[in-house]
Computed example of a mutant assay.
Amino acid sequence: MAAHHHHHHDEPTGESLIEAAAAALTHAGEQWTGMRAEVFEALVARDRPASAYDVAEDVSKARGKRVAANSVYRILDLFVATNLARRVESANAYIANPHPGCRHDCIFLICDACGRAVHIDDDKLTGALVEAAKNAGFADIRPVVELRGVCADCSSGLSG
């Protein structure tokens, strides 16, 4: 796997990321509907991985009427399939992909204290995992690596 550069969409309002997500979903042959936009916006607004129930609650509050979690699950599954979101497997939660136009492997660093998840890229590491899986006879490999520990913010509070 080659190294790659990401254009991060980090405007304070998140509008750039939302526009990139809409374009990526449309490019994948799917429609960017009002409900899908609301689910993505709710996901972007969270600073931690969110469950489908968390997102459904946020969208329900914004709409002023109840939104079923199973509808949100379907949309989140579509977002994962089209690279707009990533699933944090160990937490059964989702985070918005900060670079939806780039398909690559996933490495999450998850803080056991605050729940924060940081996504990092290390093509050398994930490339080795893919190669090992291919050598074991696997195909269509999508590494998702999760490392748990305590983030710098939380660990500095522990040492004081």
Score class of each variant (00 low, 15 high):
residue 1 M to E: 03
residue 2 A to Y: 01
residue 2 A to D: 10
residue 3 A to M: 09
residue 4 H to P: 00
residue 5 H to E: 00
residue 6 H to G: 03
residue 10 D to C: 04
residue 11 E to H: 14
residue 14 G to Q: 14
residue 16 S to V: 12
residue 16 S to N: 13
residue 17 L to G: 03
residue 21 A to E: 12
residue 25 L to I: 12
residue 25 L to K: 14
residue 26 T to N: 11
residue 26 T to Y: 03
residue 26 T to L: 04
residue 26 T to V: 11
residue 27 H to F: 11
residue 30 E to L: 03
residue 33 T to Q: 05
residue 33 T to M: 09
residue 38 E to S: 07
residue 39 V to D: 04
residue 39 V to T: 05
residue 40 F to L: 11
residue 40 F to M: 14
residue 42 A to C: 07
residue 42 A to P: 02
residue 44 V to S: 09
residue 44 V to D: 03
residue 49 P to V: 03
residue 49 P to Y: 10
residue 51 S to I: 02
residue 51 S to Y: 08
residue 51 S to E: 02
residue 51 S to R: 12
residue 51 S to Q: 10
residue 51 S to T: 11
residue 52 A to Q: 08
residue 53 Y to K: 02
residue 54 D to W: 06
residue 56 A to T: 15
residue 56 A to R: 11
residue 57 E to A: 03
residue 58 D to G: 07
residue 59 V to L: 00
residue 60 S to F: 08
residue 62 A to Q: 06
residue 62 A to S: 08
residue 62 A to V: 01
residue 65 K to G: 03
residue 67 V to L: 01
residue 69 A to Q: 13
residue 75 I to G: 04
residue 78 L to I: 06
residue 81 A to S: 09
residue 81 A to W: 00
residue 82 T to P: 12
residue 82 T to E: 15
residue 82 T to H: 15
residue 83 N to D: 13
residue 84 L to W: 00
residue 88 V to P: 06
residue 88 V to H: 10
residue 93 A to H: 06
residue 94 Y to Q: 04
residue 101 G to S: 03
residue 103 R to S: 09
residue 103 R to P: 02
residue 106 C to W: 13
residue 107 I to L: 14
residue 108 F to D: 06
residue 109 L to W: 03
residue 111 C to L: 10
residue 111 C to S: 12
residue 112 D to G: 15
residue 117 A to H: 14
residue 118 V to Q: 05
residue 118 V to N: 09
residue 119 H to V: 08
residue 120 I to S: 13
residue 120 I to F: 09
residue 121 D to R: 03
residue 121 D to K: 04
residue 122 D to C: 11
residue 122 D to P: 10
residue 126 T to F: 07
residue 127 G to T: 11
residue 130 V to I: 09
residue 130 V to T: 08
residue 132 A to I: 09
residue 139 A to K: 14
residue 140 D to L: 14
residue 141 I to N: 04
residue 143 P to I: 10
residue 145 V to L: 05
residue 146 E to S: 10
residue 149 G to D: 01
residue 150 V to G: 02
residue 151 C to R: 05
residue 151 C to M: 04
residue 151 C to G: 00
residue 157 G to D: 10
residue 160 G to P: 12
